[in-house]
């Protein structure tokens, strides 16, 4: 009988171990912790061009993560990108005239939304729209502009041999 109990015990341990591993993967490794708590308020920002911004990209202020992108859409009338941000309710005193820009972390990193606080007293709340936005830097356009400048403007200083 003891032998049978050992077998059942081993199986029980195995199942517990397996479930624990799955829980560990869910809680410690993945972002499930931030899924449940999506009670953030929604703010809309319109951009001419969002570059490579993706849903779930972080929203930061002063380098601190305060929320994330929850939706990206196109306004069919004005041909603008509409980005919906979810911002942690702990940060409910952001000035209404804050500006949003799409930035890149590092040279090859992913793109995220960076907020710059403004100076107004009234705060952003659910449904607000950010008026001041700066689009993503698109590398091709940047190079194109540099080339036009180089042709029309002063020639670049000649290199010393």
């Amino acid at each position: 009988m003891a032998k049978k109990n050992n077998l059942e015990l081993a199986v029980g341990l195995f199942v517990v171990l397996g479930l624990a591993a799955l829980f560990l993967l869910a809680l410690k490794v993945s972002d499930i912790a931030s899924i449940g708590e999506d009670k953030g308020y929604r703010v809309t920002a319109r951009f001419e061009n969002i570059g490579g911004l993706k849903v779930r990209a972080p929203v930061t202020l002063g380098g601190v993560r305060i929320g994330r992108v929850v939706g990206i859409d196109l306004d069919p009338q004005r041909y603008e990108a509409v980005v919906i941000l979810s911002i942690d309710p702990r940060y409910d005193h952001l000035p209404e005239d804050s500006s949003a820009s799409i930035l890149t972390s590092g040279l090859l990193g992913e793109q995220y939304v960076g907020l710059e606080p403004g100076g107004m007293d009234s705060a952003l709340k659910n449904g607000s729209t950010l008026k001041l936005t700066q689009s993503a830097l698109v590398l091709e356009k940047l190079i194109g502009r540099m080339l036009t400048n180089a042709v029309s403007g002063d020639p670049p200083p000649a290199k010393t041999p």
Binding site: A26, K28, S30, I32, R56
Partner: peptide
């Protein structure tokens, strides 16, 4: 190591789809 992992590994698209 852990923070980057948690930021990039998504529960539904990665853990549920992959492991489960």
């Amino acid at each position: 190591f852990w923070a980057q992992m948690q930021a990039k590994v998504h529960f539904f698209t990665d853990v549920v789809n992959g492991v489960v």
